[in-house]
């Protein structure tokens, strides 16, 4: 019989292979030996972390990330069916993500949304060239934990600040975290506008979102 370490490795490898069948097979095998929550945390989620790293290093690509996320979701569904109601995997958090008004850049923001989604967040990507108020309205509607703000031009960067100001006006700033990103954004800019964090790339966005929302 395989040891726990071997089963964890098998689960991780199955996620990295991005194949749903392989993941489900590894989950079935692990079920008799490990608790469902342990299979999810130590096997499947660890595999997804590795997928994120491989994406950042140019070894795995966006479709693979999505296939791995799809496979993980299937594995989690199988396990959740067997877990007591209170122990079922909680949603990691709700994020509204978009590019600020006047800025039509879409691709970087979209990759961040995809990576956040594949990491287990509920992501509402509201697109590009998004009016300031729409960020706040959407955050209210979905009860968001965090707003992600992208800007690719120095001229549109102030839009990130305006969203933060509007959150303050609406009395929502204390319960909604704000992450900023995009080529002209920097840590110094994030500090200046009192954003909660700045992310240099998609995998950093995932790591910082986990840190901010889980701590919250």
């Amino acid at each position: 019989m395989a040891s726990k370490e071997e089963l964890i490795q098998e689960l991780t490898d199955a996620i990295i292979s991005c194949k749903k069948d392989r993941v489900l097979e590894a989950v079935e095998k692990a079920k008799g030996v490990m608790e469902p929550s342990e299979i999810i945390e130590k096997g499947l989620a660890a595999g997804m972390n590795e997928v994120g790293t491989l994406f950042e290093r140019g070894k795995l690509f966006l479709p693979h990330v999505m296939m791995a996320a799809d496979a993980m979701t299937a594995g989690v569904q199988v396990l959740e069916a067997e877990m007591p109601a209170g122990e079922q995997k909680k949603k990691m958090g709700v994020i509204v993500n978009g590019t600020v008004e006047g800025d039509v850049h879409d691709i970087g923001k979209s990759i961040v949304s995809t990576m956040l989604q594949s990491a287990g967040f509920e992501v509402h990507d509201i697109g590009r060239d998004v009016p300031i108020r729409d960020f706040v309205n959407k955050a209210k509607e979905v009860n968001a934990d965090m707003i992600g703000l992208s800007a690719l031009m120095t001229t549109t960067l102030p839009g990130q600040k305006e969203v933060i100001e509007l959150l303050k006006e609406e009395g929502m700033r204390d319960r909604v975290k704000v992450m900023v990103g995009g080529a002209p954004a920097t840590q110094a800019w994030a500090d200046k506008i009192s954003a909660d964090c700045y992310a240099e790339n998609a995998s950093e966005a995932v790591a910082k979102a986990k840190e901010l929302i889980v701590k919250k």
């Binding site: 966006l62 479709p63 999505m66 296939m67 799809d70 039509v104 879409d106 691709i107 979209s110 990759i111 949304s113 995809t114 989604q117 992501v123 990507d125």
Partner: peptide, 22 residues
């Protein structure tokens, strides 16, 4: 990117990907 919606005729692959329509 200018060939993807809303700028162009083809559906935005970022949106399709997020819906698992690989």
């Amino acid at each position: 990117g200018l060939y993807y919606t809303p700028d162009g005729p083809f559906e935005n692959p970022g949106d399709l990907m997020k819906a698992f329509k690989i």
